[in-house]
């Protein structure tokens, strides 16, 4: 079995609605893949299956050769709505992740490590605060810090910047790339988004899902080098061509669905 995340003929139905159908995707370790699609295309469902939060309906889903049968510390998740526990301080939210990932580490060391994760993500001011006292951008940074603290080799990110303003969104995109590029070995990341530009800017590869039911309608390499420089990409012909291609694919899928309806 090849390492990484592998989906073979994966399907999922909710009641009588087929949400995902015959998904065949192989994501090698260390790749940052953007999972793109319109609302309702099953992106989040696919991520939940990969996280083990929901059982696969049909087909086979494996991580490093082992079937995914439930949540595991091997697969961290960053949710769109942060999901930090509001009754725990930001540091405690991260400490609880470290405690589960490395139970032998003493509490004082865990707290120091949690503080370091926050400092690394520019969140010194959040130390000693509670999630309710932070802005949306800061909460999402803390959520990323917690996912990193888990030390999972696979990071599943469900529209993590979807609720942020454009400035914070761009900052966190850059922060994510910086953290990912500096890590050795690099984590495998599946980044769900419905923003084409975000998908291209972050990903090595774009997997585009069509709707009703969710299925892969395009699997494209992103022909942009790393590290990525936001300003220079604005004039990149490759970026514009890829964006046009993705947009055309999505429009075509929508038209086909309308015709079928």
């Amino acid at each position: 079995m090849s390492p990484g995340l592998k989906l073979e003929g994966v399907g999922f139905a909710y009641d009588t609605t087929q949400v995902l159908q015959d998904i065949n995707v192989s994501i090698p370790e260390g790749q940052l893949v953007s999972l793109l699609g319109a609302s309702g295309s099953g992106k989040t469902t696919l991520l939940r299956l990969a996280a083990g939060l929901d059982p696969v309906g049909s087909g086979c889903l494996t991580w490093n050769g082992a079937p995914v049968v439930g949540p595991s510390l091997e697969r961290g998740v960053v949710f769109q709505d942060y999901a930090l526990f509001p009754w725990l301080s930001v540091v405690d939210n991260i400490e609880i992740a470290i405690a589960k990932a490395r139970p032998t580490v003493r509490k004082a060391e865990r707290l120091a490590e949690a503080g370091q994760y926050l400092r690394d993500l520019g969140l010194e001011v959040a130390i000693g605060k509670y999630p309710g006292e932070l802005s949306g951008g800061m909460r999402q940074r803390a959520a990323i810090a917690r996912a990193l603290a888990l030390g999972s080799p696979l990071l599943l990110m469900d529209e993590p910047f979807g609720a942020l303003d454009p400035v914070n969104r761009a900052r966190l995109q850059d922060l994510l790339l910086e953290v990912w590029e500096l890590a050795t070995p690099r984590k495998t990341i599946v980044f769900v988004t419905h923003d084409v530009d975000e998908a291209i800017y972050l990903g090595d590869r774009l997997i585009v899902l069509g709707s009703s039911p969710g299925r892969v309608i395009a699997d494209l390499e992103v022909p942009l080098g790393r590290p990525r420089e936001r300003r220079s990409l604005l004039d990149s012909h490759s970026l514009h061509a890829l964006r046009e291609q993705v947009a055309a694919t999505l429009v075509q899928d929508t038209l086909q669905r309308l015709k079928a309806a």
Partner: peptide
């Protein structure tokens, strides 16, 4: 989301 979070954390 908190249930999911707890499951992810194991």
């Amino acid at each position: 989301r908190y249930r999911d979070n707890a499951r992810i954390l194991g």
